[in-house]
């Protein structure tokens, strides 16, 4: 990973597109994060997936810009009939989701198999 960018892995399962960003989501990467989410929602929709899971295990931290990017993605995905869920938050992301109360507006799974 280079500074100011995120690395991504993508996996598909039955009815599910699983994406895993790696790095920090802050003011320097939030736009890239939001744009990539929009692309992934479009791909999930074209592939007929009903859920897009974002694996948070390798996120170093996410600022409010990234969190609000999740909200924008949630709105966009709802228009496509896709539900965004969050998976495997590491300890820092678990705290950030709790502090922001984003764990109240997104379904959060402890492991991928539980989705």
């Amino acid at each position: 990973m280079t500074q100011g960018t995120l690395d991504w892995t993508v996996e598909t399962r039955e009815g599910l597109r699983l994406i895993a960003p790696i790095g920090r989501v802050d003011e320097t990467t939030a736009t890239e994060f939001a744009e990539r989410l929009a692309e992934e929602i479009a791909k999930a929709a074209s592939d007929g997936h009903k859920r897009l899971a974002i694996d948070l295990a390798e996120i170093e931290y996410m600022s409010s810009r990234g969190l609000r990017g999740l909200t924008l993605a949630q709105r966009q995905s709802a228009d496509s009939g896709i539900t965004i869920v969050l998976a495997r938050p590491n300890q820092i992301m678990r705290e950030i989701l709790a502090i922001s109360r984003y764990d109240k507006v997104f379904q959060v799974f402890d492991d991928i198999d539980g989705i």
């Binding site: 600022s63 409010s64 969190l67 909200t71 502090i99 922001s100 109360r101 984003y102 109240k104 507006v105």
Partner: peptide
Amino acid sequence: SLADSASMKEDWGHSSNV
């Protein structure tokens, strides 16, 4: 909270600690 300001309380004119 950020979640409230971006959902139920959006456009109520306030912000969050985050």
